[in-house]
């Protein structure tokens, strides 16, 4: 334990010598840092935040404790507004998912990502089209045919939340194959996967980590991934198939791509030193074997971005969501 504290301290000193011309040391937290999760316990963002918390504690990456706090109210609006109003408090960071864009658009709460200070993109979460393994569809084509053949609206798609990423993808699929699904919103990704296993819905677009256990148990079957290229992980998971063997939806004639941001923001008016501190922290987190394992278990896309690149990416993504949600008719009706 001791050496790692020492080395972190040394690194901090070295960094401050190299970076700043001023004699003042680089910024460091002086109080416990609140790590806000704008989603409920047990979800994807929550799991990632708690993994990070565990890694930080285990490797002593911070002198002050990192405390995960769930603020899930109003589809995450509670968490975003909390960070927005903590202007100038550098002891508050937030992990985001797509509700960074969708919640303000769908509910009209007074919030925009530009109210926060972007820190870093940690990873992108993939979406996979899943069906029950008992169903006869073994390819996207079978699936689309079945969906088209079913009477309009009787084909059920389960997903997490309403007017959020899962429903956006569903609308995208509807457009791509010109048919109509009934979208049923549930509270959490795990519940959605189980509803699919119990045959209460016909398909889902779960994240890999939410459904992998059921895939390994032979209950679910992945059909395609909503990404431009197949996932990178080639370790076999079930039936000799790996994440890598799941074709992209586009290659199967289902033209829809969607990746979800797993990124970090902090409270408004953060100084450059403060942002820098957290960027370095997350670089260290990413270097640990625990993080690598976590990325592998959830088949994440491990793109990492900071600074202007990150802000630019988020901005483009916001535009895209606005377009997608407008097309789907998900925008708040101005109340």
């Amino acid at each position: 334990m001791k050496p790692s504290v020492l080395s972190v301290a040394l690194a901090a000193i070295a960094m401050s010598c190299a970076n700043s011309t001023a004699s003042r040391a680089a910024w460091e937290p002086v109080r416990p840092v609140e790590f806000i999760v704008p989603a409920g316990t047990g979800g994807g963002a929550d799991q990632m935040a708690r993994t990070i918390q565990g890694i930080v504690t285990k490797h002593n990456l911070m002198k002050q404790p990192l405390v995960v706090i769930n603020k899930a109210g109003g589809a995450g609006g509670e968490g975003f507004l909390d960070v927005k109003t903590s202007s100038g408090n550098p002891h508050k960071i937030i992990i985001t998912l797509s509700n960074l864009f969708t919640t303000p658009l769908a509910t009209g709460i007074p919030f925009n990502w530009k109210d926060l200070t972007p820190v870093a993109m940690l990873a992108l979460d993939e979406f996979v089209l899943w069906v029950n393994a008992e169903k006869p569809y073994s390819s996207v084509k079978d699936y689309v045919d079945a969906a088209k053949k079913a009477p309009s609206g009787s084909f059920k798609m389960g997903g997490t939340g309403s007017k959020q990423e899962d429903q956006i993808i569903t609308v995208g699929i509807e457009k791509a194959v010109d048919t109509k699904f009934t979208y049923i919103p549930y509270k959490g990704g795990g519940e959605v996967a189980v509803q699919l296993v119990g045959n209460h819905v016909d398909s889902t677009v779960n994240n890999p980590i939410e459904a992998v256990a059921q895939w390994r148990g032979g209950k679910l079957r992945p059909l395609c991934v909503f990404d431009a290229q197949p996932m990178a992980y080639d370790e076999p998971i079930a039936e000799g198939k790996a994440w890598k063997d799941i074709p992209t939806c586009k290659s199967q004639g289902l033209a829809m791509e969607y990746l979800m941001l797993r990124g970090i923001f902090m409270s408004p008016k953060a100084t450059k030193d403060q942002v820098e501190y957290y960027v370095e922290l997350f670089k260290k987190v990413r270097a640990t074997p625990e993080w690598q394992d976590f990325m592998k278990s959830g088949a994440f896309n491990t793109t990492f971005m900071t600074g202007a690149d990150y802000a630019k990416w988020v901005e483009a993504e916001e535009k895209r969501h606005e377009g997608l949600m407008k097309e789907a008719g998900f925008l708040a009706s101005g109340n």
Binding site: G40, G42, T51, G188, V212
Partner: peptide, 22 residues
């Protein structure tokens, strides 16, 4: 329950995948 949800997160972090295979 919420507590069970946090325990579930713990399982995942320890590399234990809850599900039929556990």
């Amino acid at each position: 329950s919420p507590t069970a949800a946090v325990l579930l997160g713990g399982l995942l972090i320890w590399g234990l995948q809850p599900g039929p295979m556990l």
